[in-house]
Amino acid sequence: MASPEMKPSETPPSYLPSSDERMWGLLAHLSPLIASGMGLPFLGPLIIWLIKKDESPFIADQAKEALNFQIAVLLAVMICAATVIGILLLPIVAVGALIYSIMAAMEANKGVYYRYPYTLRFIK
């Protein structure tokens, strides 16, 4: 029987991450905050995914998820920057990206296979 917080159609993942893997998942979601200073927020998740994807399905999944989200945020920023009204929306996009990244990091630290809302999955 499924746990009360799971929807009936969902099945629990067959792989449970270790504490080290959960830490790497957390870093995959928080690394864009550091890399944003260089203007390349997708660089952190990309590096983690390339280095760790063969070691753990959890790390690979969370790094890909963070990478896809950061690419979607980058596209949103580029579209907003192209229009006068869009420039007014840039702070909203930035705050949203920050909040969702922190939420994803906290969930990954719990071992949850987190999925960002409002994102495109470029890398599958």
Rank of each mutant, 00 (worst) to 15 (best):
G37K: 07
A35W: 11
A97H: 00
I123K: 13
R121D: 12
L43P: 06
S14P: 12
I102N: 01
S14M: 15
N68A: 10
A97D: 02
N68I: 08
L50I: 08
M38P: 04
P13E: 13
V73E: 04
Y15H: 13
A76Q: 00
V73L: 04
A97F: 01
V95K: 03
S19A: 14
I59S: 07
L89F: 00
A108K: 05
V73N: 05
S18G: 14
A104L: 04
A63L: 09
Y113V: 11
G86F: 01
V84G: 02
S14D: 15
S56M: 12
L27C: 07
I99L: 06
Q70Y: 08
S56H: 10
T119E: 12
D61N: 11
D61Y: 13
A81N: 01
L46D: 05
S56I: 10
L50P: 06
A97G: 02
S101C: 01
A104F: 04
K124S: 14
S18L: 13
I87V: 03
L33F: 03
L46I: 03
L46Q: 05
R115Y: 13
M106H: 07
M106R: 08
I48Y: 08
A105T: 02
T119G: 10
T119S: 13
G44S: 06
A97C: 01
K110G: 08
L46G: 05
L89W: 00
T83D: 02
I87R: 03
E21P: 10
S14W: 14
P57C: 11
K64A: 09
